[in-house]
């Protein structure tokens, strides 16, 4: 199970990558492995706004459903439409092609409240 350096993590098993003008959000390797083969992804509409910890989407495996919770407040600027036809991207490449949404953050300081890679690795160790 991999935890990638240089990302921010939430206790709900989402990761956040900081880009110049926006944030990229996905679910962690740990999360995809817990869920199993993902068969369906429900994503928000572009321009939808969320507060930190709101549910913004749904991941489904054959026998389980899991909400995804946004780690930072903000407005959705792009969703990963490739996932609609190829949900397995999340299983195959959770930190890369399996990203979920791109967000214009409302408050950059919220990033500081998230876990570092090291802290998240410890967190899942305890789970």
């Amino acid at each position: 199970m991999s935890v990638k350096e240089d990302l921010y993590y939430s206790e709900d098993h989402e990761w956040v990558r900081e880009e110049e003008d926006y944030l990229v959000i996905g679910v962690t390797d740990f999360a995809q492995e817990e869920l199993g083969d993902i068969v369906f992804v429900e994503l928000p509409e572009v321009d939808e706004e969320f507060d930190k910890d709101d549910s913004f989407g749904v991941l489904e495996s054959v026998k389980a459903v899991s909400d995804t919770f946004i780690p930072v407040s903000g407005r959705v600027i792009k969703v990963n439409e490739d996932l609609l036809d190829n949900p397995e991207l999340i299983n195959d490449d959770p930190y890369g092609e399996g990203w979920l949404i791109k967000v214009d953050p409302a408050d950059d300081s919220e990033l500081d409240e998230l876990l570092s890679a090291e802290e998240y690795a410890e967190f899942i160790e305890e789970e």
């Binding site: 054959v62 026998k63 389980a64 459903v65």
Partner: peptide
């Protein structure tokens, strides 16, 4: 497609 159904999704 059972995730639509009550035994998995309950109230949703």
């Amino acid at each position: 497609l059972q995730t639509r159904e009550q035994h998995i999704r309950r109230e949703k």
